[in-house]
């Protein structure tokens, strides 16, 4: 039986009827066409599906859509303001923080969350905090560099 929900996605109010077993990641990708949030491992290990739910980085493959009723969600598509990239997105771009790019949206979302929680964290903190996001192409070096740089820029801006 479908359930009526209302939530905010990237600043937009969305009303929807969803099945109770619909995963949030499937709702975002299939019903909202927000395909920047990826499915990597299906089991909340790899972090490719990381989004922000009420300001916290969460794995959207491990949350039911109905649990997001009333929540405020930001996906990778909602991070930039118009054509201007978010500082964390710019930092990943500038510092070569990606190769195949499949993990990148989740990495960027995790990076923003790390910066919000830790200000301008040192690399050791970033490495510990980023354990829930897997990358198979890079050795994480430029990802850590990008998050550190993005966090500095975010701190400078606020």
């Amino acid at each position: 039986m479908a359930v009526q929900i209302s939530l905010q996605i990237n600043g937009r109010t969305v009303e929807a009827e969803v099945q109770p077993n619909l995963l949030l990641v499937d709702f975002l990708r299939q019903e909202q066409r927000l395909t920047g949030t990826h499915v990597g491992c299906d089991t909340a290990q790899c972090g490719a599906c990381t989004i922000h739910l009420d300001g916290r980085a969460v794995k959207s493959c491990a949350i039911l859509t109905v649990q997001a009723d009333g929540a405020r969600i930001t996906t990778i598509e909602g991070l930039a303001s118009g054509a201007e990239l978010h500082p964390m997105q710019r930092a990943f771009h500038r510092h070569h923080g990606l190769q195949c790019g499949f993990c990148t949206p989740g990495m960027v979302m995790a990076g923003v969350s790390i910066a919000e929680n830790h200000g301008t964290p040192d690399p050791a903190v970033i490495r510990a905090e980023l354990e829930g996001n897997l990358c198979r192409c890079t050795g994480y070096h430029n990802i850590v560099k990008a998050i550190a740089a993005g966090a500095r820029e975010m701190a400078g801006r606020s």
Binding site: L85, L98, G101, T104, P105
Partner: peptide, 9 residues
């Protein structure tokens, strides 16, 4: 890189 960081790839 630009489409990856913005989720547009």
């Amino acid at each position: 890189a630009a489409v990856h960081v913005s989720g547009q790839a």
